[in-house]
Amino acid sequence: MKRRVSTYVLLTAGLLVVIFPFAWTMLASFKPESEIRQNPPALLPADWTTSNYSGLFERMNMGTAFLNSAIIAIALVVANLLLCSMVGYAFAKLRFRFRNTLFGLVMVQMMVPAIVVMVPQFVLIAKMGLVNTFLGIVLPFVVAPLGIFMMRQFISDIPDELIQAARVDGAKEFRIFFSIVLPLCRPALATLGLITFMTSWNNFLWPAVVAQSEDMYTLPVALAIFSNAQATQYGLLIAGAVVVVAPILLLFLFLQRYFVQGIASTGLK
């Protein structure tokens, strides 16, 4: 019992330290611009205001940007969940020539510095006529190496007996994948989905380069307009950061029960 209390105390202390910068940001989003920039800065707003938020909605089309971000993120989540687990399954449980070479390529893609490939990738997208389209923003990332890596790791842990039994039954490989493997991957899929969503939601450089009209802008791209070498408008940026993070927080809140379930409860054991 004592042990449990000390765990709670530790966790709470840790939590306070960890979320302090975030809490400060939340509070700062209700400060007028002059207070945010004030030196020395203060913790609590002296003069509470929602002008940063109203400014955000007045000066840019938040609804459109929000919707665009959501469309892109959801498309990428769906694509990655399906494709990464397919590819991950092949790497974990199927045998074929060049398997290791191919997996090496997955790792290579994971390690490529994004800035190096950006211009050539854009040229490709332009040649395909996909500039300023959702497809152009999404296509290079529909099957992310991190996802393949994760799914391969998880699927490797599924006992071979399960798959072997199905093969003996004569089940086709696709049926094995969809009806046996995929359902077992639920916790991993939840994690992957969340990571994919988040990465896409916060991604900046690529959508900023591919989207050429404001009605295609995602949230981070639209918010970057306020970031100016000479006069960055911190109030708008901070309020924007809060607006950007809110959906991910909600999503995590909703999805975390899948983590709690764990692998044991999915019928594996």
């Binding site: 854009f122 900023a208 380069v209 970057a224 970031s227």
Partner: peptide
Amino acid sequence: ALGWDVAHDKITAAIAGNA
């Protein structure tokens, strides 16, 4: 409207891709 942070990259890429 574009952000200053991305403007240089974006214009260069657009020139490269003839877009």
